[in-house]
Write a protein that binds this DNA or RNA. Structure first.
Length: 839
DNA sequence: GGGTTAGGGT
């Protein structure tokens, strides 16, 4: 094998993978892609990189890249490989996760999170720095893993020298093999003791089922029990019930522990502390993959979990409680039987299990795709419909993702792109000058300047959009702090035993109109205390103030990372404190479809697209709810909740969402006083009325209608006070014609208004929509054609009345010397009808 | 008044 390796490589005898290492080495040597399937304990994670090293990989040709789904795993895997090779971490074996890079020029094996590898793709399109890539835990099918699997698939022909190893639990290696053109699969056994499965279908409620199962297992022998539940509330209910359970024997005494991700770190750590008494650990899905609880001999599985699903219809994230898949149930079962035989009690029937889907839906079919689409577009991958995903997301989710990117102005409208290329193919000019061709249906449109910036920012596109706007509004410093807070787990802790104390401690920072302002207050407090206190005093303060020190650090790390990237993007940081309004206007740029209007009757909010949401009880806005809000997160659980919120002025949304708002106008009417046509404007954003009845100059909205109304009311009806000569002359002509009607006792002598309208319509300038417009137009026009607008009697008298003349109806009745005025009135039925002589 | 799973990043 290779001579350049500084050490002899050995393999732990007891690991199952050691027995198969020659087969694995052979397969890797002979094939570009190899699938290695094996359960935890098989040793694949740590031994595969060593096998690759022995094959001479990771040396002159490039590095062996090894991805892990989680940061902690990346570090511990690197530590173990380094230890087994007898080298120091960061030299031959290194690792890189966000905020930490412990790799060097000597590094041959680089362990990293899959997100780091994806990030490197942006700068190294063909991943030239690697000669081997190991994708570990591929069966977890996270968004990152599926993206990498697709990317690698289309990279293989360009990199014939690249070797790829996909590792997976034994659940479904064939699927990966099929994706990589029938790549060979090598199965490695795990090291597991047998686990007996007992089905105990619920007869009562879940809590009762759990206590019954725990009671059953207490009699089965010594060892800790791990119970899988769907969420915090279920854990609390079960914990209460179990603590009430009075064990009959001393040996049955046990303590109850909870375990879920949002738990305070101290409470989480109790699970790993050595202990004497038997334990029952009540856990969510954290214990399924992320955390391994030691010493578990028994598992109780409720068969339920909260699964995140993105609704392409309502564009909202949901967290329904669902029956888990067979694969997930088996994973839970596998959490016992590591050290001795185990028992797994499933709180459902065997037929129920048999009827369940084999696998959990991969994240890519369950999630908002905006970020993936943005990345793919930035990479010039063009048509998402043609990208070789193991399992392609459906068209509607892709459309929803594109729609969100349009909302935040990251891409130009797909519809517009399609319209300009009627043959169903859209050519998109990429940032680097290349051209992407895509089919019409799932066309990936071109990135805007904002879109290119968002693709560089390591946060959710909505949060990135806030940052870009923060720069524009001179409040980048504040917006980065908020965006960083929104992308990490909440640094505020709320231990179950001290919720009131924690709430009180956190309330000091609350702002009654904005949870975001509350975050900024907390940030300021933390910064100040850090400056004044020693490092250990600060840690103590975090504890007493119910703040998670590590998450505070993460917040600060992310803040500096975002500052740095922003600087590279030419976004400038502000030195002076920004106004709250500037900050909130910036945040709104990312939250346009997350605004809500108070429904006073129902105590909730009317949201985008007809949705309704309520303010989450933990928000500072829960008590006194403002008329309009924006929410950073809308998640549907028991109902649709807005979790982090602030009051907004609806008019802000009008300008920031100018590309999205719909305007409708009603009641265009002539206003005598203004000498203009006015109408009422209603502005809606995703169906939410952000302006309800604003009076606007209609001449700017609909010139034709406004001109029409101007002519009818001002010129024809004379609803105008003006000195124009033609105006008064015309009124006199009309008066004369009307007088004729009275005297001749006939209607219809004076032409109708339509004729007068047509007269003006033919003559008045096309832009004349108000008295002001008229005046300036007429000032010019009358120089050349001063008589343009003057009526003649011929015009205003109907053709049929040609033979009549006012002269035939004298004004005065002469009788002898007396001359008595005659008044004509044509008003049948009235006393004054006919000719009246005034004596 | 009311209350969410857990991962990842240029």
């Amino acid at each position: 094998m290779s001579a350049t390796l500084p050490m002899q490589i050995s393999y732990p005898e007891q690991l199952p993978v050691t027995q198969r290492r020659h087969d694995i080495a052979e397969a890797i040597r002979d094939h570009q892609v190899v699938i290695v399937a094996g359960e935890t304990g098989s040793g694949k994670t740590t031994q595969l990189p060593k096998i690759c090293l022995e094959l001479g990989r990771g040396q002159e040709g490039g590095v062996i890249g090894h991805t892990q789904p989680r940061r902690i795993a990346a570090r511990t895997v690197a530590e173990r490989i380094a230890a087994e090779l007898g080298t120091e971490l960061g030299q031959l074996v290194g690792y890189q996760v966000r905020f930490t890079d412990r790799s060097s020029a000597q590094t041959m094996v680089k362990v990293m999170t899959d997100g780091i590898l994806l990030a490197e793709v942006q700068r190294d399109r063909d991943l030239r720095r690697y000669d081997t890539i190991i994708i570990d835990e591929a069966h977890e099918r996270s968004l990152n893993i599926d993206f990498i699997l697709g990317y690698v698939k289309q990279l293989l022909p360009r990199r014939p020298d690249l070797k790829v190893v996909i590792t997976s639990a034994t659940i479904d290696p064939r699927r990966f093999s099929a994706h990589f053109d029938d790549a060979p699969v090598i199965e490695v056994s795990g090291r597991m003791y047998p686990v007996e499965v007992r089905y105990r279908e619920l007869t009562d409620d879940q809590t009762q089922g759990i206590t019954d199962a725990v009671r059953e297992l207490l009699t089965a022998g010594p060892g800790d029990i791990l119970v899988f539940l769907s969420g915090e509330r279920e854990i609390r209910d079960a914990a209460d019930a179990l603590r009430r359970l009075r064990p009959t024997r001393v040996s049955d005494a046990f303590e109850v522990l909870s375990l879920y991700a949002r738990l305070s770190s101290a409470e989480q750590h109790r699970v790993f502390a050595p202990h004497q008494r038997r334990r029952v650990v009540l856990a969510t899905n954290v214990a399924e993959t992320s955390l391994t609880v030691p010493g578990i001999r028994y598992v109780v599985d409720t068969g339920l979990a909260r699964i995140s699903r993105f609704s392409a219809r309502t564009k909202v994230q949901r967290l329904p409680i669902e029956p888990i898949s067979k694969a997930s149930a088996d994973q839970r079962k596998g959490r016992c039987g590591r050290q001795a035989d185990g028992i797994c009690i499933r709180l459902y029937a065997e037929e129920d299990f048999d009827a369940r889907p084999e696998f959990t839906d991969p994240e890519i079919v369950r999630t908002n795709l905006a970020s993936v689409i943005l990345q793919m577009t930035a990479l010039g991958l063009g048509d998402i419909g043609r990208f070789p995903f193991v399992e392609p997301p459906d068209t509607r989710s892709v459309q929803a993702g594109i729609q969100l990117l349009e909302e935040i102005g990251a891409i130009t409208s797909a519809r517009r792109a399609r319209r300009s290329k009627p043959r169903g193919r859209a050519e998109t000019r990429m940032a680097d000058g290349r051209t992407a061709v895509s089919s019409g249906k799932n066309a990936t449109p071109a990135l805007t300047t904002i879109g290119r910036q968002l693709a560089q920012l390591p946060v959710d596109p909505r949060l990135g959009r806030m940052i870009v706007e923060g720069h524009r509004n001179g409040c980048l410093r504040e917006v980065i702090i908020v965006a960083a807070a929104l992308s990490i787990q909440d640094p505020r802790e709320r231990p179950s035993e001290q919720q009131d104390a924690a709430d009180a401690a956190h309330r000091r920072f609350a702002d009654p109109t904005s949870d975001f302002a509350g975050l900024l207050n907390l940030w300021g407090f933390v910064k100040e205390q850090q400056k004044e206190l020693s490092s250990s005093a600060f840690r103590r303060l975090c504890k007493t103030d119910f703040l998670n020190y590590l998450r505070i650090r993460e917040w600060q790390d992310l803040d500096s990372q975002l500052r740095q990237v922003s600087k590279q993007l030419g976004l400038s940081l502000t030195k002076t404190p920004a106004s709250a309004e500037a900050v909130h206007r910036s945040l709104l740029a990312g939250l346009l479809s997350h605004i809500g209007m108070k429904d006073v009757d129902k105590r909730d909010y009317l949201g985008a697209r007809g949705s309704r949401f309520a303010i989450f009880p933990g928000s500072a806005l829960a008590k006194k709810q403002p008329p309009f809000v924006m929410s950073a997160e809308l998640v549907e659980t028991s109902r649709l909740w807005g979790r982090v919120n602030a009051a907004i002025e609806p008019e802000w949304a009008e300008s920031i969402g100018a590309h999205l708002v719909k305007r409708t106008y009603s009641e265009p009417h002539w206003e005598y006083k203004r000498g203009a046509v006015m109408a009422f404007e209603k502005v809606t954003l995703y169906g939410i009325p952000i302006v309800s009845e604003r009076k606007v100059d209609y001449g700017r909205i609909d010139r034709a209608v406004a001109r029409d109304l101007f002519i009818r009311h001002a010129l024809v009806q004379g609803e105008w006070r003006t000195h124009h000569r033609f105006f008064h002359a015309n009124q006199e002509v009309l008066a004369e014609a009307e007088e004729l009607e009275q005297r001749a006792r006939r209607r219809g002598i004076v032409v109708d208004d339509e004729t007068l309208f047509d007269f003006y319509d033919e003559r008045v300038g096309p832009d004349v929509v108000s008295t002001a417009h008229f005046d300036s137009w007429w000032k010019q026009q009358r120089r050349t054609t001063p008589q343009l607008l003057e009526f003649s009697l011929d015009l205003v008298v109907q053709d049929a009345a040609d033979d009549l003349s006012v002269q035939e109806f004298p004004d005065v009745w002469r009788h002898g010397d007396a001359a008595m005025p005659l008044v004509y009135e044509f008003d049948p039925g009235a006393e004054s009808d006919g000719v009246t002589v005034e004596i």
